[in-house]
Simulated assay, not measured.
Amino acid sequence: MAIFDDEPKKKARPHEIGQDLALLSVDELSERIGILRDEIARLETELKSKSTTKSAAEALFRRG
């Protein structure tokens, strides 16, 4: 079993927009889809947060 423990692990490369997907396996494609969905959710949360902050600031300045 030591033979397998000594083998270097394949490091996943980050996804690059527009890259050739032909060389990726089904598992790699599924993993990248999950990563991208998580990133989209993170971006949407940040966008919502910034929109709420912007609306609050606009409301504050309209009162003054």
Rank of each mutant, 00 (worst) to 15 (best):
L29I: 15
D6C: 06
K50T: 06
I17Q: 12
I40F: 01
R32V: 06
F4H: 11
I40D: 01
A12P: 07
S49L: 00
E58A: 05
S49Q: 01
E58K: 08
K11A: 07
G34A: 03
I40W: 03
E28W: 12
G18C: 02
E28I: 02
T52L: 04
E58W: 05
P8C: 03
L60Y: 08
E7D: 14
S30L: 13
A2F: 09
L36K: 02
A12T: 09
S55A: 12
A59N: 13
G34F: 04
K10P: 00
P14L: 08
T45W: 03
T45G: 03
V26M: 15
P8T: 01
D6Q: 04
L60P: 00
S25Y: 13
D38T: 01
L23A: 15
E39R: 02
R63D: 14
K11Q: 10
K10R: 13
G18D: 06
R13T: 07
R42I: 00
F4Y: 10
L29T: 10
L24W: 08
G18V: 02
R63F: 01
A56Y: 04
G34H: 06
L29R: 15
K50P: 02
D20N: 15
K11Y: 06
R37K: 13
K50L: 10
G18M: 02
S55G: 04
E39F: 03
S25H: 12
H15R: 15
D6V: 02
D38V: 01
A2H: 08
Q19R: 06
P8L: 08
L24Q: 06
A59F: 03
R62V: 06
E58C: 03
L43I: 09
I35T: 13
P14H: 05
T52V: 07
S30P: 01
M1V: 11
A59Q: 14
A57Y: 08
K48P: 01
S49C: 01
A12L: 14
D20S: 11
S55P: 01
A2Y: 09
A57K: 14
I3K: 13
K10T: 09
A12C: 08
M1C: 14
E7K: 14
I33G: 00
R32E: 05
T53G: 06
H15W: 11
L29P: 04
S51H: 11
F61E: 12
E44I: 03
R63K: 11
S30M: 10
R63N: 10
L36A: 05
K50A: 02
Q19D: 13
K54C: 05
L60Q: 07
I33V: 10
E31N: 07
A12E: 14
S30V: 04
L47A: 09
L23Q: 15
T52Q: 09
R13A: 04
F4K: 07
H15Q: 13
A41H: 07
A56V: 04
G64Y: 12
S55V: 05
L29K: 15
E58V: 06
R62K: 11
I3R: 13
S25N: 13
K50N: 09
R13D: 05
S49D: 07
L24H: 12
R62Q: 10
E39N: 09
